[in-house]
């Protein structure tokens, strides 16, 4: 384990590796348990940064800032700001100001001019799922019983996701249900049901992340077909290395059940 490994793992999580580096690291992840543990540790450090910092945006003193900018003459030549004597009002005063700022968090809806990063953030979990699902092979779930998902695991999913996840609600014709897991992305609970469809892994994921309702969209990334939609504050995704029409049909089957 090296610092370089850490850096590469972070780049994998952030989807910033080129294809060669990505597949080399993916191969190592399969055979090196220590590297997998490190990956999990680094992934756990992915907090909902964007959401948290959006609550700071709405606290910006826009009127005061705009007035200061308006005071700068057209040529930018006059009304030099007071940086010559930056006011340092002391740690206590600054802390107080920011404490008030902290209290403001949550009282406001996200700013109407909220940055595009919110959409990117919501999209990130799909990217992350697509990334690890692309590491699955026909053997990945070979050791899991074919008896369907464990009842206790489904109950845990239902509880964390706030939606009924049952054998019936996740059953798909012709697919073998292999296992159910509780994961998390960016602090949001993410449930995953894994199936085998003609021997290929297919996953159905539900995340409780308050994203806006969205109709089903289908896309293909690196041979992986992904159908995703959102409803009732939850994001849904079906993905697998299967034809896009097949994944779309599975999504259409699951959609009305949630």
């Amino acid at each position: 384990m090296t610092d370089t490994d850490d850096a590469r793992l972070v780049a994998l999580i952030d989807n910033q590796l080129d294809e060669t580096a990505r597949s080399a690291l993916a191969t190592r992840l399969v055979v090196e348990p220590e590297l997998r543990a490190r990956f999990a540790l680094l992934a756990a450090g992915g907090l909902p940064f964007s959401r948290a910092f959006d609550s700071v945006l709405v606290e910006a003193p826009l009127a005061s800032l705009q007035a200061k900018i308006d005071a700068v003459a057209p040529g930018g030549a006059t009304s030099r700001p007071r940086l010559g004597a930056v006011r340092w009002i002391g740690v206590a005063a600054a802390a107080m100001a920011l404490l008030l700022l902290g209290w403001g968090i949550g009282r406001y809806a996200p700013s109407p001019s909220a940055p595009a990063s919110i959409a990117l953030q919501d999209d990130d979990w799909r990217r992350a799922v697509a990334q690890y699902v692309s590491l699955y092979t026909a053997q990945t779930f070979a050791n899991d019983a074919d008896a369907g998902a464990n009842e206790a695991a489904l109950a845990q999913l239902s509880q964390n996701l706030g939606v009924a996840v049952t054998q019936a609600s996740v059953a798909l014709p012709d697919l073998m249900l292999r296992r159910a897991d509780m994961l998390a992305y960016d602090g949001a609970p993410l449930g995953q049901i894994a199936y085998l469809d003609a021997g290929e892994p297919v996953v159905f994921c539900i995340i409780r992340n308050n994203e806006k309702d969205a109709p089903v969209t289908i896309e293909t990334r690196d041979e992986l077909a992904i159908a995703s939609w959102a409803h009732g504050g939850r994001g849904y995704l079906v993905a697998g290395r299967r034809p896009a029409q097949r994944i779309a049909a599975l999504a259409e089957t699951l959609l009305p059940r949630f």
């Binding site: 003193p61 940086l83 340092w88 009002i89 100001a97 920011l98």
Partner: peptide
């Protein structure tokens, strides 16, 4: 980490 400095 200071609001007034950020404004300046």
């Amino acid at each position: 980490a200071a609001r007034d400095v950020a404004e300046d």
